[in-house]
């Protein structure tokens, strides 16, 4: 069964996102939370890596963290889905393990 990877760091502040995307297997899910959500912004230098991962993985953002940073749904890389905390719980429940890229 697959893994939920959470990333809570900006891609401009370390390797959490690149490591998570690099070590995620096909069928895994990657959820960007906290400062991690800035990596999902359309046109950012991280967007290409996110787009590439969408071919084999699901990529999510935590909606309240996106909103808190002044971004809107239309600002996100297309294909990235937004979830609330209940959705975060569902993702954790529906994957065999959660791996936090702190």
């Amino acid at each position: 069964m697959s893994t939920l990877h959470t990333v809570n760091k900006s891609p401009f502040d370390g390797t959490s996102l690149s490591s998570a995307l690099g070590l995620a297997l096909p069928g895994d899910a990657v959820l960007l939370i906290e400062d991690g959500v800035v990596g999902a912004r359309k046109g950012s230098s991280a967007a290409k890596a996110i787009e590439a991962s969408l071919a084999s993985c699901k990529v999510y953002v935590l909606g309240p963290d996106v909103a808190a940073r002044g971004m809107k749904a239309e600002d996100l890389v297309s294909g990235v889905e937004s979830v609330d905390y209940a959705g975060f719980v569902d993702l954790a429940a529906n994957h065999a393990r959660t791996q936090s890229w702190l």
Binding site: S2, T3, G22, L23, A96, R97, Q99, L102
Partner: peptide
């Protein structure tokens, strides 16, 4: 390798991150 590490991780029950 990174690919082998991904496989190791996918075989775990619990991952504790530090």
């Amino acid at each position: 390798s990174r690919a082998e590490m991904a496989k190791v991780m996918s075989e775990q029950d619990v991952v504790l991150s530090f």
